[in-house]
Amino acid sequence: MSRLRQFLPGIAIIVLLIAAWWLIVTTTRSVIFPTPWRVVTGTVELIRDGTLWMHIGASLGRVGAGFFLALAVALPLGLWMGWQRGAYDTLNPLFQILRPISPIAWIPIAILWFGVGNASPIYLIFISSVFPMVVQTVAGVHTIEKRYLRAAENFGVSRYKLFTQVVIPAVLPQIIVGMRIGLGVAWLVVVAAEMIALRSGLGYLIIDSRNAGNRYDLVIAGMIIIGLIGLLLDGLMRLLEGLKMVRWRYAH
């Protein structure tokens, strides 16, 4: 009951917005801007002919490939940079310059290097999600409390054990934060990348719907689906915060 009360205002504002949208479109008799109902019928149309699943699958596939590639690079790199002062001093200035460059700015170079196939968006997703994950992992290593490292040193454990039982578990909560940020940016970027050169994906669906006959109902349907899937992906990442191994960080 209290949960319902918690969600009620959020749902109410969305319902209100849709109502206002409906009202404005019908009163202005807009020929090009669709009513919410037209968006619904448009979505059903996409589901019926199967193209929606194809576009969602294409987008998710690219995000998955780029994201996991970035994770596989960011984790060891972040741990190494966090642990070895020299590695940090060498690589950090370069990363600080590369990080603020919007992934969108990489699009021309991505196309030049990788062409207009799947490799380009995967590269863009990689570039956009690798930096936040490296930065979070490094920060995680740097903020491990000294008393834990001192205790590990005192018990004289091997380097392997130091990493698997102290350093990595201590950094894990930060790594998960990095993964949430990384996946969030990856989802933003895939849609942008697909608007440029590809013939599949939710980004392509939006651009194609506009170009092929001003189907703004499908444009808005695509936008809403992107939002919902983004919410779902973040929810999945948040499940990781519930892992027993990291719950200490959120206790108290």
Binding site: R147, Y148, R150, A151, N154, F155, Q165, V166, P169, A170, L172, M245, V246, W248, R249
Partner: peptide, 13 residues
Amino acid sequence: ILISQHGSVFPWL
């Protein structure tokens, strides 16, 4: 072995 005043039990284990 030093038993620290501030405690150093690993919270993740």
